[in-house]
Amino acid sequence: MKGLAPIATVAVLLALVPFITASNAVLNFLVMAFLIALAGQGWNILGGYGGQYSFGHAAFFGTGTYVTAVLQVRYGMNAWLCFALGIAGGALVGAVIGGLSFRSGLRGSYFALVTLAFAEVLRIVASVAPITGAGVGTLIKLDLRPEAFQFQSRAPFYWVLLALLVVSLILTRIIEDSRFGAYLVALRENEDAAKALGVDTTLVKLGAMTISAAITAAAGGFYAQYFLFVDAGIAYGPWISVEALLAPIIGGVGTVFGPLLGALVIRTLGELTKIVAGDAPGLDLVIYGSVLVAVVAFAPRGIAGLIERVRGRLTPPAAPSLERSHG
């Protein structure tokens, strides 16, 4: 299949990083960036390709996190199995929210609102329900064995996450090249026209939301294993809804590498903020918010769009750029 070569190249280069540096700071940074990239890739399937902007992807991230943690702690199940069930749980939550929203015909601002509200409901429930550890949170017992999805060092965590990320990139590429993907993009561009051509837009959106939720839930499950701690503010908090959306929008919505690019950028900005201003709560998000506004204003197609524009200037004008019309 064409288009897999860039993904393979990126995968190999990134897999080599732990051999080049053993610095925990570097690996930590990349783990957080990949985590956001993975969550963002989930958002990108639905928002970037399908044009349905969710403001509540925390609902899926958090479900992945809690299912992974709670099943282990309360029922002593195997961590990998819990992780898989976390992904399934996220997908289920996505299917339910999507089913309700799309069947009610919610789109645009209303879809954004309702996803945000669902995430908030889950956050409040998680902060009072006994099974989630309520306000205290849930701590996963230290058990540094690969069978328990815990490792002695950062590098194996890094490779597992990288593998998940690469799977999400390949999946996105496959979707791009499939009928499902063509239908998804078509309904983003013009829903009525898509319907007239035989596209069951409700079903396609629902499918996209389910896949999207599963990917973001995988990021959540990984988070639980990496930090071994979950509480409602982390799992279902607005921070992840914002970062999951920010990464693809900054990197380039509806592109395979957009979320990864964007995640690296926002995490770099976050680190720079910390270096300049210390660990000041809120300042990183102030910068993310400004970047979001600036990107929408000046580079609506993100970094990917900028690259394309530069490339368009370098190549002869015969190849027209794919600038999206605002008509």
Binding site: D177, S178, R179, A182, Y183, V185, A186, E189, N190, D192, A193, A194, A196, L197, G198, V199, L322, R324, S325, G327
Partner: peptide, 26 residues
Amino acid sequence: QPFPALTVRENIAVGSHLRHAKRADA
């Protein structure tokens, strides 16, 4: 009601997909 960001070929292919599941065929 075009799909503005898609090429002409991709626009038409959305219709072709009804009879062709494979991207290349469409």
